[in-house]
Amino acid sequence: MALVRAYLPIGIIVRKSPGVTRWAKWSWRVVAVLPGAGPADWRELRRDGDAVEYHAATLNLDLWSSDTEAYLVGLSAKIPSLIVVMREVPNSASGMPFEPVIVTASPYEGQDYLDSGDGLIESVPMPLGLIGWVRDFVQEHHVEEVFIKRKRDKKRMDLVEDGKGDARVRQLSDVYRAPRSTPTESGGAL
């Protein structure tokens, strides 16, 4: 079966708002996505006092026929979401501290990025039209894999004593013996 890919440009909407602590001057959050958006580079969309929303970038949402199981898990969530990954860019040309890197519909891939702890990773609710597009892709390309339980072989592994103790160290007795206390440790004389 050939690997099939479908993609759709997704605009990433980021909100910059005043921080709530003295250690963070600004709070940055991915708040929405725009399916089918055109190119953008931190274009200001809306301003409300100190809070500003930007169309930060447009990235391709790639769907692969090999990942349909992950998309099914994402679609079955209470709120189907996309995961947006933004990396920190200390001295960017745009003057913004983050750069959108990837958008994915796979919660498995999103978990991998969360485990790395690198950058800003946000879960953003999918618009209804996007849910339908992902669902249609999954219905067309998903192949249910039959679970095959692995059977143990009958070979007895407990009969071989390889690795018990260190062969380089000569021992006069059993490697599992209880350590003896020396006379000085027990308070007695030598």
Results as ranks from 00 to 15, higher is better:
R43I: 08
G110A: 08
Y108E: 11
S123A: 15
V20Q: 12
L82S: 04
P127H: 05
D62V: 05
W133A: 10
G36W: 00
G132K: 10
D153I: 06
P9M: 03
D166F: 11
R180A: 14
A57M: 06
L63I: 07
G188K: 13
D162L: 10
V14D: 07
V160E: 13
H141Q: 12
A189P: 01
S92G: 13
R152G: 07
A105D: 07
D162E: 13
Q111T: 08
V134P: 00
A32D: 15
D136S: 13
A57I: 03
F98W: 15
V134I: 14
P97N: 03
S181L: 13
E44N: 02
E53G: 02
G132R: 11
W26H: 11
F147E: 14
G165T: 12
S92A: 14
E122Y: 03
K164F: 14
A37E: 10
D136M: 06
R150L: 11
R87K: 12
W42K: 07
V85K: 03
I79E: 15
A167P: 15
S76L: 09
I83G: 02
V89W: 06
V101R: 05
L190I: 04
D166Y: 04
L34K: 11
R15T: 15
R170V: 09
Q111F: 11
L114E: 11
R177W: 12
A70M: 05
I83C: 10
E185D: 12
V143D: 01
L128D: 11
V146E: 15
E44L: 14
V175W: 14
S116E: 14
L72I: 01
S76V: 01
G119V: 05
T104F: 04
E140N: 08
D136C: 03
A40M: 03
S81F: 10
V103L: 06
E145I: 06
G132Y: 06
S123E: 15
V85A: 09
K78F: 07
